[in-house]
Amino acid sequence: MSLVFVRGWGAVSPAGWGAASLVQALEAGVGLATNELVRPGWQKTMRVRSVPKPQARPAFLAHPRLRRSSPVAHYTLAASIEAIGDDASRVADGSVRLGVVFCVMSGCVQYSRRFFDEVLRDPSTASPLVFPETVFNAPASHLSAFLGSSSENYTVVGDSTAFVHGLEIAAHWLGEGRVDGCLVVAAEELDWLTADAFRHFSRSVTCAEGAGAVYLAAAPANSTTVELDAVTDGIPFTDRVSVGDAIRLSAAGLPAAKANELLVDGLRGAARLDRAEVVAWRDWQGPRVSPKSILGEALTASAAWQCVAACESVSSGKHPAARVSVVGPNAQAIAARFKSSRTSS
């Protein structure tokens, strides 16, 4: 992989709008409070961790494209705008060719459910305003439109590992000189339908929502920065490769760890689901943090939060490097490493 620098990051999570609130929650180390989600047909509610309302209406909602957009698009925009920072104006004036890799697992589920519900009631009155927002790449499209970028824009669908895979796609676009910067963003929104679906596989996982974004570029912004050091192949779970083997194989693809290197793992605090990852990393002697156990399970967005936490820890100087282990709920395992990079510029 050619040199790829992390120029910024952003997050929207149950801890609040902004990476700072996410970091604060991780440092506190206590699982965030849950709220109740009503599931039609049930008297009992489902416990989830929702994103709190923003303190002020986000300015980007004034853009015509965002007027009817879904929460997943709002989270995407907020995390991305935080990540790209001042470079947003350079995209708009054409001096930065910006790629977008948007990663998602369940997508615009609120609008999809709403639209299909309308279809079942009476297809002739189903809303043409809602349908376009159900398409997987609607948030990515809004993001490029908001920033004024006509460069490459991929929406990558997959399990939680899609975000880390998205980093690899961005790194190659940068390496080939096709873009000057690339936003890799993952977002998910809560709905009773997804919480209900997750419940079939585990009742001890708390579903969450939000977004995380990392802004990558081939050049560093300042003398001390964070470098994307490595991304492994996604190792699929198959009849021949167990989940544990996939985690071990992906971890083995990373460079050797330094002293005081941080492990940002994907443990959720659910013993049965976590077992393979616990076993795979049992020999890890260094510090570790488990964002999902504090913030909840938000699929691709959780993986993005893991990477944001890794970047924060390296940037702050607390750790010289951080490795991220992402284990998807059903498809594959993948890993990435971020390290401190001191340059002469």
Binding site: F136, G158, A162, I235, A331
Partner: peptide
């Protein structure tokens, strides 16, 4: 839930033809 997801469709392909490799699902409409 399982077979709704495209990544499962990719895994099924790999299993059917007995190979393995990373999966990318692009959903650009």
């Amino acid at each position: 839930v399982t077979y709704y997801q495209p990544q499962q469709h990719a895994i099924d392909l790999a299993d059917a033809f007995e190979f393995s490799g990373p999966t990318t699902i692009i959903a650009n409409a």
